[in-house]
Computed example of a mutant assay.
Amino acid sequence: MLRIHFTAEDLLRVRIASDPAPLLELGMAIAALQRDDAVFTRWARRIRLPRSTRPLFELIPPTAGGPLFLDPVSEDFDDGLDRVLSTPRDDVDAELTRSCRPTPWTKGLIDRDRDAWRTLERALRGAYDGLIEAEWTRIRASFHADVAWRRMLLSEEGLRAALVSICPGSRWDGTTLELNAPWESERLLGGHGLTLLPSPFWTGGPRTNVHPDGSMLLVYPALTPLPLIEPEAGDGLGALLGQTRAAVLRVLTAPRTTSELARTLGISGASASEHARTLRRGGLVVTRRTGRAVTHLITPLGLRLLNAE
C-alpha cells in the first residue's frame, strides 16, 4: 500500500501535468516490451528496435523501476536528454547502485567514461525513434483522454473521487490517500503538492518521482492504454475512451455478462473482460458476481458521460 499524506496546503496544490513526458514514456515503453501483458502483446510483436538500444534493457526492468535520472519530466526529448547526460556523478552512482546489477558498462557510467555515456545516448535516441516519435499522436491522445476524464471527475465529484479512482482498491483515510500497490510506502508531501501524470504505456501500480517544480510526481496507468487508441476516432466518446471501449459503454446501458458483451460486439471474451475492467477502474461500469455469472452495468457517472455526447 502506498500512503500519501496530504496537508491542507497539499490539497490546494494538486495539479495534472499538461502534456506527456517523452523520456518518462520511453522508460515505460521499454518496460512494456518486457512484460507479459495481454494488452501490449500485439504491439510488442511489431516493434523492431536497433541493436544500439539493448543497453537500456540492462537499466530498465519490466517493473519500470530503473534509475530515476533516466526519465526526467521534460517538454521534449532533446531537453530531457540534456538533463540525463548532465546528471551529477553522485546521483548516477546512487541510482545505478540502487536499481541495477553492476556491469563494466554501468561502472563506466558512474566513472563518467565518455564511451559509456555515448552508448547511453545512442540507446536513448534509437529507442525514442523506434518507440515514441512515431506514436506521439496516439500517446498524446491517450494522455489527454485521461486528463479530460480526470477533470470531469474533479468538476462532478471533487478531488477525493478524482484521486481514489487512479487505482482499483484505493481509498481515503482522513487526509491520507491509500493507493493499492504491491509494496508498503509512506509519503509526506510536506506542502509541496502532487502532480498527476497518466502513462499510456503503464498498466501496473502507481509510481512516484519528484517533479521539477518540487511536488511529488504520481505516475499511473492512463484510462486507455496506447494499443487501444485508434489512429483516428470518429466521435467524442471514441476519442476519450477508444472506439471499442465507447461501444462497450453504450451496450452496458443494459446488464450484460462478459460472454454476452463479447457476442454483441464481435470481440473475444478476453477483450470484453479487459474493456469492462478498465471502465470499472474509471468508475463508469460496475461488475457484480452471482454464483459463476459476472454481470456488467453502466454506472450513473457513465450515463452522464453518454448523455454528454
Rank of each mutant, 00 (worst) to 15 (best):
R101M: 12
N180H: 10
R160P: 12
R256N: 00
A116S: 13
S142Y: 04
Y220S: 12
R45P: 01
E274Q: 11
D10M: 05
E25G: 02
D213R: 04
T203R: 11
H296N: 13
A8H: 06
L26T: 01
S199K: 02
T63I: 05
E121M: 09
P227S: 12
R245T: 15
T7Y: 06
L12F: 05
A44R: 10
W117A: 13
I229L: 00
L177A: 06
R45L: 09
P102E: 12
G130D: 01
G282T: 03
V285C: 09
I298Y: 02
T137Q: 12
Q34I: 11
V248A: 10
R112N: 14
E135F: 01
A222S: 14
A233P: 09
G193Q: 06
V73H: 03
D113P: 05
R150I: 10
R42E: 15
L56D: 09
A148S: 15
P221M: 01
Y220G: 02
G80C: 02
T175L: 14
S185A: 12
R46P: 00
V251C: 08
L49P: 04
L179Q: 08
P22G: 00
V210P: 00
P231R: 11
V219N: 03
L303C: 06
E274W: 07
I139V: 15
D129A: 14
F143V: 09
L68K: 08
R3L: 06
R304M: 11
T290L: 13
W183T: 09
I110R: 12
A270Q: 05
T264Y: 03
W172A: 13
L197I: 10
A116H: 01
S170H: 08
R125V: 15
P104R: 08
R151H: 13
G191D: 03
D115R: 10
E9L: 15
A239Q: 09
L109I: 03
P300D: 12
L33M: 14
R281L: 05
T119I: 07
I60K: 03
A141C: 09
G282I: 02
G169L: 05
I139E: 12
P168V: 02
L26P: 05
L12A: 14
G266T: 07
Q243A: 15
L56M: 11
L163E: 09
T106N: 09
K107T: 15
R245F: 04
L197K: 03
N307I: 14
L23E: 00
